[in-house]
């Protein structure tokens, strides 16, 4: 279990996160949802260990990781732009970290990851030759082979289009279930958060607006912000579909 206790952060005297308290169970998919500048990426970076917190504690499986370096926390991330190394092939990217941690995964396990993410036909390709969805899967494979204790995803679907988005969404859910991997996702899209996650942490101006399951958020919004930000957007989307295609699709 991951516990965030009284986590606070300021940048240039501006409060970015204010006393955040959350508990995330093992194997859960949790979305950090909020508008731009709400503090969700900062929170993700604090969990990762990239950004140092000002106050509070990060506890994982009863161990205080607040002062543990990013490298030693054992968490891993897929960045929004994937940060793949363009001079290497897809396969070389996937096994990049294994040169530093020999024996971490067996050859069979490695092939399983590759098969699971359907990357076999693309292994020899250079990064520039891959589509957005393929890049995303290579980045996921590269991260998964490092066997992270928690998988962090920064806006994983923002650069993808419709059908690929759905396929990656399903894949993320399968990964979390298959490997019982706690997965924390940053997103600004309410629909994405509601359809992908077990729980959603809605952040506004550095504070938690609501933390709950998608059903709780839809049926019992805590405050006006949640209503406005989440429900209003969904209603507008629904109305647009209704206007275009009628009630059958709305």
């Amino acid at each position: 279990m991951l516990k965030l206790q009284n986590v606070s952060k300021q940048f240039d005297r501006k409060v970015v996160l204010d006393d955040i308290n959350v508990e995330i169970k093992t194997g859960e998919i949790v979305s950090l949802l909020g508008p731009s500048g709400s503090g969700k990426t900062t929170l993700l970076n604090i969990i990762l260990g990239l950004t140092q917190l000002d106050h509070g504690r990060i506890i994982f499986n009863d161990m205080d990781l607040s002062n543990v370096s990013m490298k030693n926390r054992g968490f891993n991330i897929v960045f929004q732009d994937y940060a793949l190394f363009p001079h290497l092939s897809a396969y070389e990217n996937i096994i990049y970290g294994l040169r530093n941690k020999k024996g971490l995964v067996s050859e069979t396990e490695l092939q399983e990851y590759i098969d699971f993410l359907e990357l076999k036909p693309h292994l020899a390709k250079k990064i520039g030759e891959l589509s957005g969805g393929q890049k995303q899967r290579v980045a996921l494979a590269r991260t998964l082979v490092m066997k992270p204790k928690i998988l962090l995803l920064d806006e994983p679907l923002s650069a993808l289009d419709g059908v690929i988005k759905e396929s990656i969404k399903q894949r993320i859910q399968s990964i979390a279930r298959e490997y019982k991997l706690t997965t924390i996702i940053v997103t600004h899209d309410p629909e994405e958060a509601l359809t992908l996650s077990d729980k959603i942490l809605i952040i506004n101006q550095g504070n938690i607006s609501q933390f709950g399951t998608p059903q709780e958020i839809i049926n019992q919004p805590n405050n006006d912000f949640v209503k406005e930000f989440i429900l209003k957007q969904l209603q507008i989307k629904r109305q647009n579909i209704y206007n275009l295609f009628g009630e059958k699709y709305a």
Partner: peptide, 24 residues
């Protein structure tokens, strides 16, 4: 994000510079 990625994949900073930044 390359240096952070390199670090998460077990590289030291110098090693990421040598393996990733320099070739690019």
């Amino acid at each position: 994000s390359w240096e952070t990625t390199g670090e998460l994949l077990g590289d030291s900073w110098i090693r990421t510079v040598y393996r990733v930044i320099l070739p690019n």
